[in-house]
Amino acid sequence: MAVDEATKKQDELELYQIDDKAIIPFFESHVEELRKFIHDREWQHLSLLEYLKQFIRTYKLPFNMQRYMSVQTTYIKQMLQERVQDRQIAVSHWIQEHAGRHRNRMIQLQCLYLDRIKDRLLPEIQKILEKRIENLQSKMDENH
């Protein structure tokens, strides 16, 4: 199925909303979960980029939660402007109807963004993982 031009333009606009500076700190703060995630799936023999995408899709975590919530709040406000019903009911309704799709869309955009920055991202993530494995190995060596 072909993607129309409006969708492509929307994707481009939303990709620029991703906080580039939050990506490395995101993976640093989740390095142990990422290491275990990759270890449990080594049999798949995927590239590091594909493991990163699977990790993001599995855990559905935005790179920058504060920015994600801000964008979501903007979407909610836009929807509320079109409604005259009670604000709290409208927010609750929006969350029930749209929050899951909004998060899934954001996660998909993050994966697309990883494709764009893979050349500079993957070496840094590889170093983070190697450092974590070295730290775990040295702890094991100390205990023996």
Rank of each mutant, 00 (worst) to 15 (best):
K36V: 04
C111V: 03
P62A: 04
E130M: 12
L52F: 05
Y75P: 00
L46C: 02
H98P: 00
S29W: 04
Q137F: 05
R41S: 08
K60I: 01
K139T: 04
E32C: 02
S47P: 00
I133E: 15
R101V: 07
F27C: 02
L49R: 11
E50Y: 03
I133M: 10
H102S: 11
D86T: 07
T7V: 14
L49C: 06
Q72I: 03
S47I: 02
E12H: 11
Q72N: 01
S92R: 10
N104P: 03
Q108K: 13
I76R: 09
E12Y: 08
Q108T: 11
V31Q: 11
E32Y: 06
E130Q: 15
V84H: 11
M65V: 12
I76N: 04
F26L: 05
Q85H: 07
I38D: 00
K131A: 07
R132C: 08
K21G: 00
Q88P: 00
Q72K: 13
Y75D: 14
I89S: 08
Q54K: 04
W43C: 04
D141V: 07
L34H: 01
V84P: 02
M79Q: 13
T74L: 12
E42L: 12
S92E: 12
E124F: 04
N104I: 03
S138A: 02
W43V: 09
V31F: 00
I117M: 01
L46F: 06
H45S: 14
I107Q: 03
R57E: 13
D119T: 10
I38F: 04
R120A: 09
L46Q: 10
H30S: 03
F63V: 03
I128V: 14
E14D: 12
A22T: 03
E12F: 06
L46I: 01
D20C: 05
F26M: 05
R41T: 01
T74D: 15
I56T: 12
Q17S: 15
D19G: 05
Q54M: 11
F55Y: 13
T58D: 07
Q88A: 10
I133S: 06
A6V: 15
L122A: 10
S47E: 14
L61H: 03
R35V: 08
L80S: 06
D4R: 06
V31N: 00
Q10E: 14
Q88D: 12
E130K: 15
N104C: 08
E32H: 09
